[in-house]
Design a protein around this nucleic acid. Structure first.
Lengths: 118, 118
DNA sequence: TTCATGTGTAATAATTTTATTACACATGAA
DNA sequence: TTCATGTGTAATAAAATTATTACACATGAA
């Protein structure tokens, strides 16, 4: 079995996929969320209390994490009959090397807007 | 020799260090820069041409990469007598795991601005 | 001297991200 | 019915990032 870039359960292919992950990991609140979800899944309102931010803001951060596929969500009806949305952390293990980034770089083309401000 | 989180030549300790790295890696232009520097060091003006962006913008991106300590810079006087600023890629190898992020998470405290928008 | 090339940065504009506020709607329990 | 708790999102404000423009200054060669 060949594993070019071992990336755990995440299936990152295009450079955009990686950038989504890096972007997702570039904010303290989102690292905090990951830390909490590492202990086990949690529903939104409770997660908001644990992270100490508002629910609307939490949704924004969760969206980034979900886009990066670092977390997944699932709706459930609790015993008491309430709808609960649970978020869970994905399994992942990312190895970032110069070689990987160099490889991604090959697919990136920056189209020229202006060459020099002079 | 114990190596808690192997991070190559980068010496990342605080969660801010990691966030700086993630942030640095979260933009196509910067990945492109890394890809080019992976082939060898380069001076600013030439790098700007290779990446296809303006020099002022390049400086901005280089600053982020340098803050993250993914690149280093050095001034040199060329044979022809011109001052040249060379940028080079650092050696690094980063293993990102749930455990690492969970560890970082412990040090992050989000101070409450507002609990819920309701 | 003028041109081509290198350095650096200040000021501003454009865009995106982050954060807040204010809603609407559902359920179970008191 | 009212309260506490859960869901979701639209609109806006605030802040940060990204991008542009316009400078200044240095060196070697023509």
């Amino acid at each position: 079995m060949i594993m070019e870039n071992f990336v755990g359960d995440l299936n990152l292919k295009k450079y955009e996929d990686y950038i989504n992950v890096f972007d997702a990991l570039s904010h303290p609140v989102r690292i905090k969320i990951i830390g909490i979800l590492a202990e086990g899944r949690q529903y939104v309102s409770e997660l908001a209390r644990l992270v100490n931010i508002s629910r609307p803001l939490l949704y924004m951060h969760l969206k980034k994490l979900e886009t990066a596929r670092l977390v997944t969500s699932a709706m459930e009806i609790s015993e008491s009959g309430k709808a609960m949305k649970y978020y869970a952390l994905e399994d992942f293990e990312l190895q970032i090397t110069k070689e990987l980034l160099n490889g991604l770089s090959q697919n990136i083309i920056i189209e020229a807007p202006s060459k020099d401000g002079d």
